[in-house]
Design a protein around this nucleic acid. Structure first.
Length: 553
DNA sequence: GAGTTTGAAACT
DNA sequence: CAGTTTCAAACTC
């Protein structure tokens, strides 16, 4: 059989213009399917042997090298007999994710010199194949080179990996239980019509990746949340694919959006797919592509935490998979900062107002205050409590006794959240205990003020601050809801036949309404000169109410 | 293992 | 660029 010690027959007369042709066999055509390794290699003419390429990005190399390149490092570095090579090359799983031998082509008419041939396409010589009239070998290097040249002429990217590079996409597919699949993206996208992209006819499916918006497939079921796809891998619990899927399930459930469907919802989806499929038969595939994408987007757009979106940084395919939340572009880190500033300033103002009011009241009742302080035996104790509370508040970096009943005695702090009249959720506690801001310094200052040192006053200050902060935060959430709703409507208009993409409204509204009753008067904090304009467009609806606020957020 | 189906590649 | 043909893998029986 052909020995691939080196590309001995590389023609020296490579046209100069091709010298910078870049080629990258770092991933095989079928996701590493037909080769044993994905280590990128290049033939080094100076050393007359194959060298691994680091990083995997394409390196300029001559066409002659290209025509002889192989991704199979074992194969390239030293000659091997077909048998020995097969024995040492557990590669791509053909069906169940278990390692198998390299697939040998069975080409009959292409002479293994066209991309039909997997060996040729993935840059390896045929070795132990069942092909007939094979020219994909050292003996026919000249012919092979010409074929490569012709193909590159037609499509300079013909030999580039079809699956966008990523740490996982480039991996050796030998052990699927170790690294999660679903990472990567088909650079060209598939064009499947009948397979639902759930058979190995589909290159995306074969490469164990989800179809992306690059694809122009019809009736695609190879998307995250697809019931059919889930069913396909159900039962294969050892499959990393399955595990990844279930992980994504949980992630989606966490957001409260029904993106990954329950069995009933799956049926619904199925029907939609059928509907979609039906319509697709009536229309050219191309016209459906946006709808497919919208549908996919609708299914996927809240799965931003999934590495698919973030980790795919293909040097070849710079177009990343962008399964993003509808709010992905809306909420920026600076927005969170701005919101915090607004809340802090607002809270401060509330505290100041109350303090001023107290000063005024105190001035009016000076005599009463004095006699009150003398007559009240508990005043010292209460002041101690107040001081203690301040200290504790400092220690736990928050000082807001949100759980504290407004008119009851103090005594609750971070560590005693449940002792108060209301119990804060762990999330709220964490949130509060993680925050350090000046709201509380202000309120503590007020609390330490002799004229407002009574527990009741302190509680009132806190309560007022809490109320104002929650109202404002709720308002912000509602803005987000509205903004997301608009975006959602935009998507829905694109794919009017499909289910609402995000259900963000319910998700966020759930948060908002669970936290604060709908009837809350908007705090008068808009005047704060902070970059409020960065927030999403204002909510159309007015919120009026009694200001009853729960602590749980 | 033969026949069919499928979709990418090649061609027009 | 769209439609058609060729091709070989995937799949079915």
């Amino acid at each position: 059989m052909e020995q691939i010690d080196q590309p001995t027959s590389t023609p020296p007369d490579v046209p100069p213009r091709k010298l910078v042709r870049q080629l990258d066999f770092t991933a095989s055509v079928y996701g590493g399917g037909s080769t044993s390794a994905t280590v990128p290699v290049a033939f080094d003419p100076s050393q007359s042997h194959w060298l691994p390429l680091h990083p995997p990005a394409s390196l300029p190399m001559s066409l002659s090298s290209i025509s002889s390149i192989s991704v199979s490092t074992d194969l390239c570095r030293k000659p091997q007999s077909p048998k020995s090579r097969q024995d040492t090359q557990p590669v791509y799983n053909t069906k169940e994710g278990t390692p198998t031998r390299k697939r040998n082509c069975n080409c009959k008419h292409s002479k293994c010199l066209k991309l039909y041939c997997e060996c040729f396409a993935s840059g390896v010589y045929c070795d132990g194949c069942n092909c007939t009239n094979c020219c994909n070998n050292v003996e026919n290097e000249t012919v092979r080179h010409e074929a490569v040249e012709a193909i590159l002429e037609r499509n300079p990217n013909a030999f580039r990996p079809k699956i966008g590079s990523s740490p996982y996409a480039l991996r050796d597919n030998r052990d699927e239980s170790v690294e999660p699949p679903l990472v990567g993206r088909h650079n060209k996208g598939c064009h499947c019509k009948k397979s639902g992209c759930l058979k190995r006819y589909c290159e995306c499916f074969q490469a164990n990746i989800l179809c992306s918006d690059n694809c122009k497939c019809m009736d695609c079921k190879n998307f995250e949340g697809s019931g059919e796809r889930k069913a396909l891998f159900r039962g294969d619990h050892g499959s990393a694919l399955y595990m990844q899927q279930t992980t994504n399930d949980r992630q989606n459930e966490d957001i409260g959006a029904p993106l990954l469907l329950s069995p009933s919802a799956s049926k619904k989806r199925k029907n939609q797919d059928r509907l979609f499929s039906t319509s697709s038969k009536d229309q050219p595939a191309k016209s459906l592509a946006p709808l497919v994408q919208a549908k996919r987007s609708a299914q996927l757009h809240s799965s931003t935490s999934i590495p698919v979106a973030s980790s795919v940084a293909a040097p070849v395919a710079s177009n990343k998979v962008t399964y993003r939340s509808l709010l992905a572009d809306v909420i920026q880190p600076e927005h969170a900062r701005d919101l915090c500033k607004v809340l802090v300033v607002m809270s401060e103002e509330v505290a100041k107002k109350i303090a001023e009011r107290r000063v005024q009241e105190s001035a009016e009742q000076e005599g009463h205050v004095e006699s009150f302080q003398h007559s009240d035996n508990d005043s010292d104790t209460r002041q101690k409590d107040s001081a203690t509370q301040s200290t504790l508040a400092d220690e736990c970096s928050n000082g807001i006794p949100i759980n504290q009943p407004i008119t009851e005695e103090t005594g609750s702090e971070c560590g005693e959240a449940e002792k108060g009249g209301r119990v804060m959720s762990p999330g709220t506690l964490a949130l509060l205990c993680d925050e350090q801001d000046m709201i509380f310094a202000t309120s503590q200052a007020i609390a330490k003020d002799p004229r407002s040192s009574s527990n009741q006053s302190t509680s009132e200050v806190y309560a007022e601050q809490e109320r104002a902060v929650l109202i404002e935060f709720r308002e912000y959430l509602l803005k987000l809801v509205t903004y997301g709703r608009r975006k959602e409507e935009k998507y829905t208009s694109l794919s009017s036949q499909y289910e609402k993409p995000c259900h963000m409204e319910s998700a966020l509204n759930g948060i908002a309404t669970a936290s604060v009753p709908l009837t809350v008067e908007i705090a008068q904090t808009r005047k704060v000169g902070l970059p409020y304009s960065k927030y999403p467009p204002p909510v159309g609806s007015q919120i009026i109410g009694n200001g009853d606020i729960k602590a749980e957020m």
